[in-house]
Design a protein around this nucleic acid. Structure first.
Lengths: 376, 376
DNA sequence: TTTGTTGCCGAAACCGGTTTCGGAGCAAAC
DNA sequence: GTTTGCTCCGAAACCGGTTTCGGCAACAAA
């Protein structure tokens, strides 16, 4: 590389100092105080008289003084930034949550004068590299880890590095409590699934199927368990034939729904762990000639916008991504500021949004099977 | 198994110093050189012998040395970060592009060892405040401005501050060239609209309508002009009755499409400036009993994923958001590094994705009007 | 041999903050 | 009157890099 041998391009815009910026020195000079006093006054040190402190704070406000975060960071070691790395390789990655989530997280961070950095990675391994790099260069003081897996390498990495982090979702399903020290925020998908089953049961359904998500994700297990709990609470038997797992895309949802519908006694209602899979099934079932909400009822989970625009609209349990962003950012910052990670945990509930995709069964399971035979 | 699941103990080492990090001092000591020499070697200064440079670079790699970006920033004034502020208040803000766009921008930034920071704002005014704050605290060295308006306050602000920025979209439609110094990247929506009209004309349509977007955005004008150009190229007259503007949501699209269809001589095809509006119209028209792609043809623009899942799939001009992210990040970084802003401009094309929403007209405009009368 | 050059590197200043440490000033206690 | 203790502030070190400047060799030209 010949480029290495030449000087890096210089900043042509004169001095490196930002034009209108007020520096700590200047603020101090303006006040007739030393910069150390001013700094301590602004940072809440107790050895500053309250009158001086008030004077400093006012002057800072008037002159519009803002410390450079990286200048502070060099001494404090903190850049007042949190980060999230998303894996853009995931098949179901085009989540419309992202914008809402970011809005929430950024807002919460802004309120505390923090910022949010985001990065993408192209694989699981790459995610680890990006996390390391961000932390080594200290672009962030802590991380939000979205889409937690049952066994999640990110957690191990960050923990061994001693880097603050918070999970969006829980982890370690079915494993001895080795996660006691981690903080997390999650939506109780299990209780939503449970309620979905109860709702369908109340409508008169007795054969209720379930199409779950990729078991590598922790939530997949929780939602499946919630489905099972719901059956139990409704006094219905659990038929393993009515359970499918691993659907992440619309196509998956359609395919796995078909499997369930192909049994001799097909379900008259199906609960899906994700909206995407549910929508895929609905479209496919309609193509086959089934009437969603009458021949077969469907309930989803996530609350993606498409649910509203499907016909019939999909009944789903909606996750407030914006609120999730707010909570996660807030909890993470509290952790970075010194609170104990294990104490920073929250579980929120999803909200039922009624569409037209579920209703009382028009046909018995047997009749439905006959209709399906007829259609093929 | 369980042993694998347990995590290494927390890093107990003192506060400020990162545990395993290698500092410039240490790297220099390890090499028996002064830290200034090592620094210059790594930064491509010419007064370092190539053998020394090679030795330093190798040692840095082996020891895993990474400079703290904020420590560099304090002297250089650059944090090697770019940022984007999105306005989460916008009604059509649910763009699924965001993830793709970020993936592209982050990837491009990562390659150059930069990072991408993102923030959200709640209004136009708030956007300006967030931009100022980010720059004052030097969380970023430059900005990507998405969704450019005809008159865009962000540009004025950043320009007056002397902050590097690049537009995603053009600006200043119909105004004297006041933007000659700005750099931008855009997709030629106008040529897509033009091609859409030509395509419909070739299919046999002679009355082709247009539903545009909010005129406050620059692209709205360009796309409308592209539509007009297409008519001209096809030798068709421009009928002002067939033009609507300001549709941003699905609901808007449905409403404004209805306006066009209510004329005595309704269009047999409509070009929409956005997919969202087009999808809204399609759903509404289908509810009325029209057959999309036969009674009325529809072409959209954006290439959002829903197009594929609509029935019929929407014919649309798809924007490669990922590529846009790559280019914008790359150009912005080049600008920050000293290249002239006005030289950093690129215009890309959208790609036609054929769906079933357009086809030869089954009915004449007159017949279509009669059918519509019949339906109501 | 002397006098530039040139190539290469080290010492030290510097960036803009934070934090430590010590000392001035004053009041209360002895 | 001295000592003690407390409040409040300034001087200076410090964080981890970058950049300036000067100097020492080695070599070429005079």
């Amino acid at each position: 590389m010949t480029a290495n041998l030449s000087y890096p391009p210089r900043d042509q815009s004169g001095p490196a100092t930002v034009s209108g910026r007020v520096k700590l020195d200047e603020l101090a000079a303006h006040l007739g105080l030393s910069k150390s006093t001013v700094s301590r006054a602004l940072n809440g040190y107790p050895d500053i008289s309250s009158t001086t402190r008030a004077r400093v704070e006012k002057a800072a406000r008037v002159l519009g003084y803002r410390p450079l975060s990286h200048a502070q960071a060099i001494r404090t070691g903190q850049v007042r930034a949190i980060a999230m790395v998303i894996n853009s390789e995931e098949p179901d990655q085009h989540n419309p949550f992202l914008q809402d989530f970011l809005a929430g997280a950024c807002e919460a961070a802004s309120c505390l004068d923090w910022t949010m950095t985001i990065s993408t990675a192209t694989s699981e391994k790459d995610t680890l590299k990006v996390l390391s790099r961000l932390y080594e260069e200290r672009k962030a003081d802590g991380f939000i880890l979205p889409r937690t897996a049952v066994k999640d390498a990110r957690i191990g990495l960050l923990r061994s590095l001693g880097v603050p982090h918070i999970l969006y979702g829980r982890t370690g399903y079915g494993q001895p409590n080795d996660w006691d020290e981690t903080s997390w925020f999650d939506i109780a998908g299990e209780s939503a699934m449970r309620n979905a089953v109860l709702r369908l049961s109340n409508l008169g359904h007795t054969r209720i199927g379930f199409v779950g998500s990729d078991p590598k994700f922790n939530y997949a297990h929780l939602r499946r368990d919630g489905y099972a709990e719901g059956l139990h609470a409704a006094g219905l038997p659990l038929d393993p034939d009515l359970i499918q797992e691993g659907a992440r895309t619309r196509e998956d949802g359609a395919a796995q729904g078909r499997v369930l519908m192909a049994w001799d006694q097909p379900p008259t209602a199906i609960v899906f762990a994700t909206d995407l899979a549910a929508l895929g099934f609905c479209a496919d079932a309609q193509d086959q000639g089934l009437e969603i909400g009458r021949d077969v009822s469907v309930i989803g989970y996530d609350g993606i916008p498409e649910c509203r625009y499907a016909r019939p609209a999909l009944t789903t349990f909606s996750v407030d991504s914006r609120a999730a962003g707010v909570r996660l950012a807030t909890l993470l910052i509290r952790q970075i500021r010194g609170e104990v990670a294990a104490d920073l945990r929250e579980l929120a509930e999803a909200t039922l949004i009624e569409g037209g995709s579920d209703g009382p069964p028009k046909l018995t399971s047997h009749e439905l099977a006959q209709k399906l035979n007829h259609l093929t």
